Amino acid sequence: MPEIVFAERAGVGADGHPRPTEDHVVVLDNAVLLLDGATSSDPSLPPGGWYAERLARRLADDLRTTPEADLTDVLTTAIAVVTAENELRPQRSPSSTVAAVRWLDDRVDALVLADSPVIGFGGFGTDGVDVVSDDRLAGLRRRGMLQTGADVRRRRNAHDGFWVAEAVPGAAAHAVKRSWRRADVDAVLLASDGVSIGVDQYRLFDWGEALATTRADGPDAVLDAVRTAEKQDPDGERWPRPKRHDDQALVLVDFAACSRV
């Protein structure tokens, strides 16, 4: 069994006031889930954290029942069930990212839907690092195509937009997936965008350095580094962002831990 450690920290709302985290981490016997509920500006809708918690619970239940099932199929079913149980409608539903890692005797599987990446370390990828990321949302932001709430709704779960867990079960088919030979995997990180921003935008460290810090000082040390940078840029002048501090979640699944003991 790999060693698993994680840290979570609430951010602030778009109004700058504290509120509960909308990130959810679930650790199972052979899998880890990380979901990041999207903050909604529509008070008539349930919050993203409400949706992420329900979807995470359903995913966990299904993976406990069928631990070797195809991850796309499991996610498709979970979205459909949560949609039906709560009478959710496309474009009028809260949404969430999904990052999942599942290990079997011969392989490790990863699935990413929207912007919560999974990073594999071991005998594969470039320099032993394989970043499993869904860059469609970031690409739209860079091109200025998500300026308003209406822009986001129009491009959510659309072929000219981005894909996310919401009230469209078919979105699961657009997830980014990877499978590695288990013997090749040293460790895996799962991160919400409140952590990955430290790599992708702030350039505070790369993923190899994030792994080393997590192993040496715990995942909270990585969260601290991101928060420290944000406190030094409170108004978003250096790093424009919608919220001063986003929710943060970071999970390390360390397959090499036993060999280091």
Rank of each mutant, 00 (worst) to 15 (best):
G128P: 04
G128R: 05
G128L: 03
G128H: 05
G128C: 06
G128N: 05
V129A: 09
V129I: 15
V129C: 13
V129E: 11
D130K: 07
D130Y: 11
D130P: 09
V131H: 07
V131Y: 07
V131P: 06
V131K: 03
V132E: 00
V132R: 01
V132Q: 01
S133G: 08
S133M: 12
S133D: 15
S133K: 12
S133P: 01
S133A: 15
S133N: 13
D134S: 03
D134C: 05
D134M: 07
D135Q: 09
D135S: 10
D135T: 13
D135A: 11
R136T: 14
R136Q: 14
R136F: 09
R136D: 14
L137F: 15
L137G: 07
L137D: 06
L137P: 04
L137H: 13
L137Y: 15
A138W: 06
A138T: 11
A138C: 06
A138K: 10
A138I: 08
G139M: 11
G139E: 14
G139N: 13
G139Y: 06
G139W: 06
L140W: 01
L140T: 02
L140N: 02
R141K: 15
R141D: 09
R141F: 04
R142E: 14
R142F: 09
R143C: 10
R143T: 13
R143P: 00
R143K: 15
R143A: 15
R143W: 11
G144E: 06
G144M: 07
G144T: 01
G144W: 08
G144H: 04
G144R: 02
G144A: 04
G144P: 00
M145E: 15
M145V: 09
M145D: 14
L146M: 08
L146S: 01
L146Q: 04
Q147F: 05
Q147H: 09
T148I: 02
T148L: 01
T148V: 02
T148C: 02
T148S: 06
G149Y: 10
G149M: 12
A150N: 11
A150F: 12
A150W: 13
A150L: 14
A150Q: 14
D151L: 00
D151G: 00
V152E: 12
V152K: 07
V152T: 12
V152M: 11
V152R: 08
V152Q: 11
V152F: 11
V152S: 08
R153L: 10
R153D: 03
R153Q: 05
R154D: 07
R154L: 11
R154M: 09
R154I: 06
R154F: 12
R155A: 03
R155P: 00
R155F: 12
R156M: 14
R156F: 05
R156A: 06
N157E: 03
N157Y: 02
N157K: 02
N157W: 03
N157F: 03
N157D: 03
A158H: 14
A158I: 05
